[in-house]
């Protein structure tokens, strides 16, 4: 019997390892491919005789140098960073007080408003981009970075409110009661007590908003037509391509540089985002 059990466990373990291996390769391969491509010399890269999985010639930094020296990549990084900071600021200023008010001040129907706001997150850019392109034009923002700075909070605010509502709900009500008995007004209690103890929730919103800004594609593609005003997410896949010629080496280097930091940041805060999506369905 013991042997049978052991054999069964061994088989289970083998399946486990195989499953993990398969998915790791299938999901991670493109990133490995970005790394390999970024540092290969062109003669190596475009020689069909060479084994493409390894460096057949010495690795090179020429693609990375090219990327920073000859393309708008650095500019796009700066644009993305700037837009990200602006969008994060707008989102925090509007979403934090709103989420607090809807969880604590407005009573029962605050929760309903919260759900309604969350549902607007489901309305996709591909439904709104046509009318929005007109609104952006009316505001005189077409082909500027400001167009996306104004529009992005329309989807970062709803999800941030939703995340923060879950967070604020977990703060014991008695803490705020105590602060008010101790001499603060409700609004002061929000500023001096609720915000300091919600730092990690607010940080989650910051990271989340920032990653959304880097991931967005449709609005930036629609509203901005000059390469120099673009963000990384559109600039790299659209404007690093000259005609039909792809500079694959520098293109992949750009992908790598823009994807990895976001990936690492996001990973650190992952559990919180998931909590945001699954509120209510996991106990």
């Amino acid at each position: 019997m013991a042997v049978g059990l052991k054999a069964r466990q061994g088989f289970g373990r083998a399946v486990h390892v195989l499953v993990l291996l398969f998915f790791s390769v299938a999901l991670g391969f493109p990133f490995y491919w970005m790394v390999i491509t970024s540092f290969k010399q062109n003669p190596d890269l475009y020689n069909l005789k060479n084994n493409p999985f390894i460096f057949n010639m010495k690795p090179t930094l020429e693609h990375v140098t090219f990327l920073f020296r000859e393309t708008l990549f650095l500019r796009w990084l700066g644009n993305t960073l700037f837009a990200g900071i602006c969008v994060v600021t707008i989102t925090l200023l509007l979403a934090v007080p709103a989420a607090y008010a809807l969880t604590r001040i407005t009573g029962r129907w605050g929760g309903h408003v919260g759900i309604a706001i969350f549902l607007t997150y489901l309305v996709p850019p591909t439904l709104l981009f046509i009318p929005l392109s007109r609104i952006v034009a009316l505001l005189g923002l077409q082909d500027t970075l400001w167009s996306i700075i104004v529009v992005y909070p329309s989807f970062t605010i709803p999800f941030s409110i939703w995340l923060l509502m879950g967070f604020f709900k977990s703060i014991p009500r008695e803490l705020e009661d105590a602060a008010m008995v101790d001499g603060l007004t409700r609004f002061q209690a929000f500023l001096k007590l609720v915000i300091p103890i919600s730092v990690s929730g607010i940080l989650t919103v910051v990271i989340f908003t920032f990653t959304l800004v880097t991931q967005e594609f449709v609005y930036a593609l629609t509203f901005i037509s000059s390469a120099s005003h673009q963000t990384v997410g559109v600039g790299v896949p659209i404007y690093l391509v000259r005609g039909d010629v792809y500079y694959w080496g520098s293109l992949m280097a750009a992908c790598l540089i823009s994807a990895l930091p976001i990936g690492i940041l996001y990973n650190l805060f992952l559990d919180r985002f998931i909590a945001g999506f699954t509120v209510g369905s996991v106990k």
Binding site: E174, D177, M180, L193
Partner: peptide, 28 residues
């Protein structure tokens, strides 16, 4: 408002401010 009533209250959970020290709580 509660502050104008010159009262003090001790709550069931004590409602100590988790981000402040004991001193910070007392002088709050």
């Amino acid at each position: 408002t509660p502050r104008e009533r010159r009262i003090a209250m001790v709550f069931q959970s004590y409602a100590l401010y988790p981000h402040l020290t004991v001193f910070g709580n007392i002088v709050f």
